[in-house]
């Protein structure tokens, strides 16, 4: 049952999503599709970070009655790591901000050229 561990599964799915997201960013030519790939990449990285903080069999990092009534108050053996969760919490909100900004740029670009294909934007290419 070595492979059936929740932390490892989360890590694997996160890494695969990161690779799929990179593939989309590099391979697609439509700007909206590139932004969609970016959100997938973002989700994958968040998943990797949360999976790194997971400890097998432990509960959420909230000290309520179920945790504080343990014998000899051993919190270390009861909860998962709170630090990666706090980082991911802010990362998701910032990810939303970045996505919104990218979409605003995409709207501006479409207004300028009436096209979303990146091959049409060759003004700075020589």
């Amino acid at each position: 049952m070595e492979t059936l561990e929740l932390g490892k599964i989360g890590l694997l799915i996160g890494f695969l999503l990161v690779i799929v997201g990179f593939w989309g960013i590099l391979q697609q030519k439509n700007i909206i599709k590139i932004i969609v790939s970016f959100t997938i990449l973002n989700t994958g990285i968040n998943l990797v970070m949360v999976a790194l903080g997971y400890v097998k069999g432990h509960t959420a990092p909230i000290i309520d009655s179920s945790v504080s009534q343990l014998e000899n108050h051993n919190v270390l053996n009861a909860i998962v790591d709170p630090v990666p969760q706090a980082l991911v919490l802010t990362a998701i909100v910032i990810g939303f901000g970045v996505t919104a900004l990218l979409l605003a740029y995409a709207m501006k670009l479409f207004k300028a050229k009436k096209s979303l294909e990146i091959n049409d934007f060759n003004d700075l290419k020589w």
Binding site: L6, A51, G53, H58, P61, Q85, L89
Partner: peptide
């Protein structure tokens, strides 16, 4: 949520 991160699950 399965990886015991309810805060992150709500935000996501």
């Amino acid at each position: 949520l399965l990886m015991s991160a309810p805060d992150v699950a709500m935000t996501e």
